[in-house]
């Protein structure tokens, strides 16, 4: 067992875990925070996306012990205009991918603001790409939604991203 100290949504939490325990399982099964979802457990679906010091990560591909001392934000700690926008634009149906989509979108907006390009960004020098629908789609493609609420998600993200 390894003692791991995390700050989760602003609260210090200590857990004793085996080194092979993923951050996702630590959150869901050790801390009882089930808002973060498990869809594939191998980084293919994005349902487990959380923010680690503000950066989006797949918590299923992260070991809890790697995140000792880090600040983790899960959907339970999110209070963001995206939540109302997802509701307004119906950016979900079953809701299972939603926590990951919202955390991913928060991280993605920060990446964009910091000037990070995506695979569809044409101008790599300058102030960064305009966040067009194509940019949003490309940057959110790590988050699957089998219900197919993609149009609503793009609308929600675009509304919150602003002009």
């Amino acid at each position: 067992m390894v003692e791991v100290r995390l700050r989760v949504n602003g609260t210090a939490r200590e857990i004793d875990v085996e080194p092979q325990v993923s951050l996702l399982d630590a959150l869901r099964e050790r801390l009882g925070m089930t808002g973060t979802k498990k869809g594939c457990d191998q980084g293919a679906c994005g349902a487990c996306t959380v923010l680690a010091d503000g950066e989006r990560i797949c918590s299923c591909l992260a070991l809890a012990v790697q995140y000792d001392g880090r600040e983790i934000t899960t959907i339970e700690g999110v209070d963001h205009p995206l939540q109302a926008a997802f509701t307004e634009h119906d950016g979900f149906q079953c809701g299972y991918c939603t926590p990951g989509q919202i955390c991913s979108a928060i991280g993605m907006l920060a990446e964009h603001k910091a000037g990070a390009p995506s695979a569809v960004t044409e101008e790599l020098d300058g102030d960064g790409a305009e966040l067009t629908d194509d940019e949003i789609r490309e940057r959110m493609s790590g988050n699957l939604c089998r219900c197919g609420a993609y149009n609503g998600i793009v609308d929600a993200v675009r509304e919150v991203a602003g002009p």
């Binding site: 925070m33 089930t34 808002g35 959907i75 339970e76 939540q83 109302a84 509701t87 809701g95």
Partner: peptide, 21 residues
């Protein structure tokens, strides 16, 4: 109208089958 379960789904409060303690 908005979904009645939207608040539960956008906050992570909606509990699925593997999430009842």
């Amino acid at each position: 109208v908005d979904r009645v379960d939207a608040p539960a789904k956008v906050t992570g409060r909606a509990r699925y089958a593997a999430e009842f303690p």
